[in-house]
Design a binder for these strands. Sequence first.
DNA 1: ACCTGAACACCGTTCAAGT
DNA 2: ACCTGAACACCGTTCAAGT
Lengths: 192, 192
Amino acid sequence: VTTDIRADTRPLRADARRNLERILASARALFAERGPGAQMEDIAAHAGVGIGTLYRRFPTKEALVTELVRERFQEFGVIAAECEGIEGPYDALATMMRRHGEAVEDDVAFQLAMMNLNEFEWEGIEQDKAALNAVVARIIERAQSAGEVRADLRAEDYGMMMCGITATMHFMGRSHEWRRHLDLILAGLKPS
Amino acid sequence: VTTDIRADTRPLRADARRNLERILASARALFAERGPGAQMEDIAAHAGVGIGTLYRRFPTKEALVTELVRERFQEFGVIAAECEGIEGPYDALATMMRRHGEAVEDDVAFQLAMMNLNEFEWEGIEQDKAALNAVVARIIERAQSAGEVRADLRAEDYGMMMCGITATMHFMGRSHEWRRHLDLILAGLKPS
DNA sequence: ACCTGAACACCGTTCAAGT
DNA sequence: ACCTGAACACCGTTCAAGT
């Protein structure tokens, strides 16, 4: 089995491939500009395709959002890999969390998905999530071995903590305070 | 000035008063049962009134949610007052956070409002929020004076922390893990 | 295969008519 | 004053017709 949506299909026809890329670019642009309320019709128009073409690639709006979230998770993986190279074990974890927060700071569509509203569809992301999770687990374990982080912290806690920090970006419109929230969390990770 | 919606109006006619109460009861019931997707038509029908009557009291769906959130904030105030009576200063704070979390655990409509989606309308709640905030500030200060909580914690951090914990109730459908998140936060509040 | 857009469905909101 | 529900508006989704 594979979770790549295109793995077991013929490659797209050249024009269809172009259309798909334009759809994704337009979706990124309009979601960033207008938030998750950006309309399917507008995304299609912005991409220069009919609404039917958009629905041919993505059966629902949520499926389109899922694809964008998947891309973001791949970016998370890159960031995590970079942070694994940081010398201080605690520093590596702290920097990763901060950089993951920064990566998401302006992406309202992602933030809502992360908070899992209307039972967000995680299928198709599991593979990317697992890859990220492996790096996160190594970074956490290294910090624990160095005695710089509580021994009972689990890799599965990471998503939960980032979910909480991400939610903070919405709270009463005070989007910058997530850094303070992160500081509080980080303080809680030190061994007691 | 006053923030009470009914302060400077004549009391409602008896039948209108009854209708208002039925609308609120139905809204509580249907939001609890179906989440924030519960429909205005269904709420009106459940309350035994026409849709127009619902819109006479609440100009938008969001205004209806706001009223329910306001009631919840009053409940928060009661809980906070009770926790102020707890002997241990740190215990008072920890118990209040836990009980506030429990109060919200099954209320999806509130959770979404707390996360401030689509720029939730806080007007009409400010007074209740201020009352709650005063008690929270006292509980935090007491714990700080006792040296049981970091000196740099501010009362304004409280809402942010609870927002993060509340968001966790949605994350990947693992609604029970918010208690672990709370534990992490609480650990971070101890003086370093 | 892929593209198109008119049409449909759903649901929040309005408003003219009624008591 | 208050109540009602048919009608409207908006937007996600479908599908018959076209290349």
